[in-house]
Write a protein that binds this DNA or RNA. Structure first.
Length: 596
DNA sequence: GTTAGGG
DNA sequence: CCCTAAC
């Protein structure tokens, strides 16, 4: 059946702009094969293009697909069914006419709140392929196609959208954020309701960022018991609302990550107009100003003393986008454009949503000391030869960092969460990035090819219009490719169909206690409620996980302590497990016997 | 979408 | 943690 034919899309990587998609909900990390928590990436849209023409997915007809409103609806128990309106199969889009290396580009487009909820585009060859259109050629190939998708950020700027603030980028790792800690909530039902809140650091990152996207001027919610009220983050359950078509599609055709160091010079050169990631610190001025189109962000550098004599020296950097490593997409040719976009989104989500932190490279050298000032590291120098690179890194690379434990966003309840995890390093593209003592600006703007401009910190923020003349694509510095070479892989080599398995995350004692409490209250068999009650914001814990954990807990409690492995669970908890299990089993029996 | 249970 | 049948 043609339906089961797959198309392999190889992503050499594409660039993610730093303008988030504010209208989208935040989801946590997740398996790439299933729709799960896709925290970070839902701030972005995917553009795919063939030969420079957009393919338009008819997603606008369903603007609420991923809107916060819908998330809210779902959260409040409304069963909002999503309709997949993507009817145009890929074969209509002429996507495979390019053989094994089509000029399909995927582009992350910042899609902000507003009328155009969905700015996804897929470019067809010579014609706009709207999904509702039938203008594309319907072709079917008997052979699998491997289409290399080169990523590029097309520089869709949305002036006026100021979205970043607070714990973005460095701020994220330097500013103590209440949401970056887990805390217990005893507000539920009084006694034993304990809620583990988001012990996931990467989700913290997303949360911090996303909440800031939404609250342009306010600080992140502090100690909000119910974070969902303060942030648009959706619970896990909400992630499962997508229609079965997409679900099945993604289940059947999971994409694969590909070794990033497979990137060759050709793939690099294919990115076309790419800069070398050089910052041009052409100007520095005292007194920071806000870009007219800038994205305001309070700086985590506050409190640090600027180098004497250079007080007020503002460095404006614009991270236009950051690079996502090469991906593999395996998708049937009968899949719709919308499905393709979503699949790509899932792919990117998985990579970006996996506990990242920001690494900074200066002239190829990684700057590890977070306490250094920009001027101390020489970033402020008016030197075009400086190469400043931003890098998305897996968290575990920070374990070796002395400042790891000082990073509030890495604080977790369970130490094992700090353990080494495989993830992916991503490269930031660079633009101008404004950092001041009190605030920093991130400005999304186009950039001239081969160069990155430092915009002067002029009082008149609109004076930086020259940026619009620049090109969108920014190159990742060659040096950064070295860093990418250390990208660990989860994919089994040799098996292109290998689906990513979620990383093992042992339950901490704290989590076990929360689980026990919830089960004591709710009983077994109500795992969704248990999840919502006690692990609502621990997005990496699904109710299936909780059910499984309870299963193992019961088993653990029954075996001898010598046979137990892993982090020892207090016997008191295990006793409660047995007690609760016995109780609820009895209740279950009673209910079953009642009708008789 | 959830639940239950085997793997 | 995955998978899937069953609901």
């Amino acid at each position: 059946m043609v339906l089961h034919k797959r198309l392999n899309y190889s992503f050499d990587g594409y660039h993610v702009p730093v303008i988030p998609r504010a209208s989208r909900s935040v989801r946590g990390r997740g398996s790439i094969r299933k729709k799960r928590d896709n925290s970070h990436i839902h701030a972005f849209e995917i553009l795919a293009s063939v030969a420079g023409n957009f393919l338009h997915a008819n997603e606008s007809s369903n603007p609420e697909n991923t809107s916060f409103a819908k998330e809210a609806d779902l959260f409040h128990g409304n069963n909002v069914k999503e309709k997949e309106n993507d009817e145009t199969g890929l074969f209509k889009g002429d996507l495979f006419t390019h053989g094994t290396c089509s000029k399909i580009t995927t582009t992350c487009v910042p899609s902000l709140q507003g009328e155009h909820d969905n700015q996804s585009h897929i470019e067809g060859q010579g014609q706009n392929v709207l999904e509702r259109e039938d203008g594309g050629m319907k072709r079917r190939n008997s052979n699998e196609k491997i289409i290399h998708i080169k990523g590029s950020y097309v520089g869709v700027n949305e002036p006026g959208h100021k979205v970043f603030k607070d714990c973005t980028l460095e701020n994220n790792v330097e500013k103590p954020l209440p949401e970056c800690r887990n805390h217990l909530d005893s507000s539920h039902g009084g006694s034993i309701a304990r809620k583990l809140v988001n012990t996931d650091n990467d989700e913290n990152f997303a949360r911090c960022t996303q909440s800031n996207l939404r609250n342009k001027i306010s600080s992140p919610p502090l100690d909000t018991p119910k974070l969902k009220d303060a942030s648009p983050i959706a619970s896990d359950e909400n992630n499962s609302r997508d229609n079965s078509e997409l679900e099945n599609l993604q289940r059947m055709y999971p994409f694969k990550k590909r070794k990033f160091f497979n990137q060759t010079s050709s793939s690099t050169s294919d990115r076309g107009s790419q800069c070398q990631g050089v910052f041009d610190f052409s100007d520095s001025k005292v007194n920071s100003t806000i870009h007219g189109t800038g994205i305001e962000e309070s700086s985590s550098i506050a409190g640090q003393q600027v180098h004497p004599g250079s007080k007020g020296c503002n460095v404006k950097l614009s991270i236009k986008s950051f690079k996502v490593p090469e991906l593999f997409i395996d998708i049937p040719e009968t899949a719709t454009i919308g499905s393709l976009k979503r699949t790509v989104m899932e792919a990117v989500t998985t990579i970006l949503g996996d506990e990242l932190h920001i690494g900074i490279l200066l002239q190829g050298k990684k700057i590890r000391d977070d306490n250094k000032t920009l001027i101390q590291t020489g970033i402020c120098q008016d030197d075009k030869r400086h190469r400043l690179g931003f890098m998305l890194e897996p968290r575990h690379t920070r374990i070796s960092s002395p400042s790891y434990n000082e990073d509030p966003c890495y604080l977790t309840s369970s130490p094992q969460q700090k353990l080494s995890r495989q993830s992916t390093s991503l490269m930031f593209q660079q633009g101008t990035y404004n950092v001041s003592q009190e605030r920093s600006l991130i400005k999304i703007e186009s950039c001239a090819e081969g160069d990155l401009k430092l915009s002067s910190s002029v009082a008149d923020t609109s004076a930086n219009n020259n940026m619009s003349k620049c090109r969108a694509l920014v190159a990742v510095p060659a040096i950064n490719m070295q860093a990418l070479a250390v990208v660990p892989l989860r994919r089994k080599s040799g098996n292109p169909d290998f689906g990513q398995r979620r990383i093992r995350r042992p339950f901490s004692v704290l989590e076990v206690e929360a689980l026990v409490q919830a089960v004591e209250k709710l009983g077994t068999g109500r795992w969704r409620d248990v999840k919502q009650r006690a692990f609502d914001h621990a997005k990496h814990r699904t109710y299936v996980d909780l059910k499984d954990k309870w299963k193992t807990l019961v088993h653990t409690a029954r075996i001898s302590p010598q046979q137990r492995r892993g982090e020892p669970v207090p016997q008191e908890l295990l006793d409660r497990v047995l007690a609760a299990h016995a109780y609820w089993s009895q209740q279950q029996c009673k209910h079953q016997l009642k009708p008789l």
